[in-house]
Amino acid sequence: MTTSPPTLPAGLTTRPLTRDDSRSVFELIAAQELEDTGRVDIEEADLISDWNRPSHDLAARSIAVFDGERIVGYGELVGADRADAAVHPEFRGRGIGTWIAGWIRETARRLGSTVVGMPVFVGSAGDRLLADLGYHVRWNSWVLELAAGAEVPARELPAGYAIRQARRAELRAVHDVLEDAFLEWSVRERESFEDFTASTLGRPGFEPWNLRVVTDAAAEVVGVAVVILTDDTAFVDRLATRADQRNRGIAQALLVDAFAQGRAHGATVSELSTDSRTGALGLYEKVGMVVTSNYVNRAIGL
């Protein structure tokens, strides 16, 4: 027996997103996060940063659902198998989320994907919906916080190593260290250097101090931290050590430095996120960080 694809409630309209929609989508996601988690983690700069990437075709990979002039739901295929979506809490229970999930699956199939998934807060309406639609859990992820006033234990670097702000001439080495490390456990295409610079250096509010590196005695980049300052929070967006340089305290030294730099620029709270593919949760808990949010990535074969 076949079933008809879901339809949107009468009166709602759709179109692809444009860059001018970043504020409206931010407000939509913020409303969903506040309802589901009691806090807002999204920034408009997160969307602008993602949409800055030259490889991202927003017109082909996104959909917005409108009630009049108001965006009340959206879906976006970010990579080959990663999607994001949100429905305003006031519009839940009308089939909008189910319709968006169907649109994402169909778009992913059309673009050649064999699986697609998205992160959802554990126990949220989105988590329950995807479970009901047959999505399985691929991995868990967590947001961790170092409370105001707390310190990560300092680690001395090996002789001849230094920690500092990255230099423009080092950007390709920075990108290589990050991608080499993340691709050890993340199954995706390698991020282009152009996408990296557009989303990192092109992020609204980016300042040179946000990009931290550890160099070895030969002045080669062997560790990288990307720090995002949001109001009173320093968020370590990415942290990586070159494979041949691990177990020397480089990652912990970068954490100490990143959080100290954040405080020097007005932050009182320090955060980062990790997931079960990395095996790093225990490391962060060992240095005094505590889990504040728990997400799962739910996926389905196409």
Rank of each mutant, 00 (worst) to 15 (best):
D36V: 02
T37Q: 14
T37I: 09
G38W: 02
G38H: 07
R39N: 10
V40T: 15
V40G: 01
D41N: 10
D41K: 07
D41W: 08
I42R: 04
E43W: 10
A45S: 12
A45Y: 02
A45M: 03
D46I: 06
D46G: 05
I48M: 12
I48D: 04
S49M: 03
S49E: 08
D50S: 14
W51L: 02
N52S: 13
N52G: 05
N52F: 09
P54M: 06
S55K: 09
S55Y: 05
L58D: 05
A59E: 14
A59Y: 00
A60K: 15
R61S: 08
R61M: 09
R61P: 01
S62F: 04
S62M: 10
A64R: 02
V65M: 06
V65G: 00
V65Q: 00
F66W: 11
D67H: 11
G68M: 06
G68N: 08
G68A: 08
R70C: 10
V72Y: 01
G73S: 03
Y74D: 01
G75M: 10
E76I: 12
E76K: 07
E76Y: 13
L77R: 05
V78F: 11
V78I: 15
V78G: 01
G79V: 07
G79N: 11
G79K: 05
G79I: 00
G79W: 11
G79D: 10
A80N: 12
A80D: 11
D81S: 15
R82A: 11
R82H: 10
R82K: 03
R82I: 13
A83S: 14
A83P: 04
A83E: 03
D84F: 05
D84M: 06
A85Y: 03
A86C: 08
V87Y: 06
H88E: 10
H88R: 06
P89V: 01
E90T: 14
E90D: 15
F91T: 00
R92Y: 03
G95E: 04
I96A: 01
I96C: 01
I96W: 00
G97C: 05
T98W: 07
T98E: 14
W99A: 03
A101E: 06
A101P: 01
G102A: 06
G102V: 00
R105S: 07
E106V: 10
T107Y: 06
T107I: 03
R110C: 00
R110A: 15
G112L: 15
S113P: 04
T114I: 13
T114D: 13
T114Y: 06
T114E: 14
